[in-house]
Computed example of a mutant assay.
Amino acid sequence: MYTGLQHLHSYLTYLVLLGLIISFLAALAGLFGSRLFTDKDRKLSLLGLIPVHLQWVVGIILYFVSPRGFSNFSGEAMGDSVSRLYILEHPLTMIIAVILITIGYSRAKRMQGTNAGFKSIAIFYGIGLALILLRIPWNAWPGN
């Protein structure tokens, strides 16, 4: 079960990144194109939100079943940079990113009919995407 969750979490990251990049670029195009944020644009921004939430659920489950996660939490582990990454830095940064992306989507859906919906998606999804890219453990990805 652990190995399957680990692989799911790793490969789902590609879907998360793709969805966020598409949503972010569409928001930038709408923002700089001076278009109005419509229901179609709101649905397009779900391409970023849904995979992020799915990844978060898988990540939380993995955090509690992984030997590198919660069960490894100790003062000694905090001294090791790799252990600290898996115990604290990666999960905390990802939770912040999920919260920001969710806030961006929630704000934008209330701004339909204005250009401000694109701005909300661009800012919050952009910051969330940057946080995700900063704290992905690249060396642990399959193939590395």
Rank of each mutant, 00 (worst) to 15 (best):
L36H: 02
I99A: 09
I96P: 07
I61M: 01
S83P: 05
I127Q: 03
A29V: 01
L44I: 04
G69L: 07
P137Q: 08
A122P: 03
L47F: 13
A140C: 13
A122K: 03
I123F: 08
L5R: 10
G48W: 11
L129F: 08
V65N: 07
Y14W: 12
S34V: 02
S120K: 08
I95V: 15
S74C: 02
G75Y: 00
H7A: 11
W138H: 07
T102C: 09
G19K: 05
A77Q: 00
N144C: 05
V65H: 10
M1P: 10
L8E: 10
H9F: 08
S120C: 05
V65R: 08
I99H: 04
A140N: 14
S34K: 12
K40W: 01
A26M: 13
L54R: 01
L17K: 09
V16A: 06
A122H: 00
F70Q: 01
F73H: 09
Y86S: 12
V65I: 15
P51A: 09
G104K: 11
Y125K: 07
Y2I: 04
F24E: 03
I21R: 04
D41Y: 11
R107Q: 09
L18P: 15
V52D: 07
G104W: 09
I21P: 04
L85D: 05
I123M: 06
F37C: 00
G48F: 12
F64E: 11
F64D: 12
I22F: 09
A27L: 02
G143E: 03
L92G: 13
G126P: 11
S83L: 12
G104V: 09
L131R: 09
A97K: 09
F124R: 04
I127K: 05
V58G: 06
N72L: 06
R68L: 04
L49V: 06
N115V: 00
L15D: 06
R107C: 02
I121Q: 02
S74Q: 01
Q55K: 07
F64Q: 13
G126D: 11
A116F: 02
I96S: 07
V58L: 13
L49S: 10
P137H: 07
M94N: 00
W141S: 14
K40L: 01
M111P: 00
I21Y: 08
L28E: 05
I60F: 12
G75F: 03
L100N: 06
D39E: 14
G30Q: 05
K43D: 03
V82S: 10
R110D: 03
P91C: 14
L54M: 05
L20F: 11
T114K: 06
P137S: 10
I61Y: 02
L88A: 14
M78P: 02
F73M: 12
S66K: 03
E76C: 00
R135A: 14
P67K: 15
S66A: 11
Q112C: 00
V57C: 06
Y125E: 06
S81E: 13
K109M: 04
G33T: 03
M1F: 13
A116H: 08
S45I: 04
N144P: 09
T93M: 15
T13F: 14
Q112E: 00
F118Y: 15
L133Y: 01
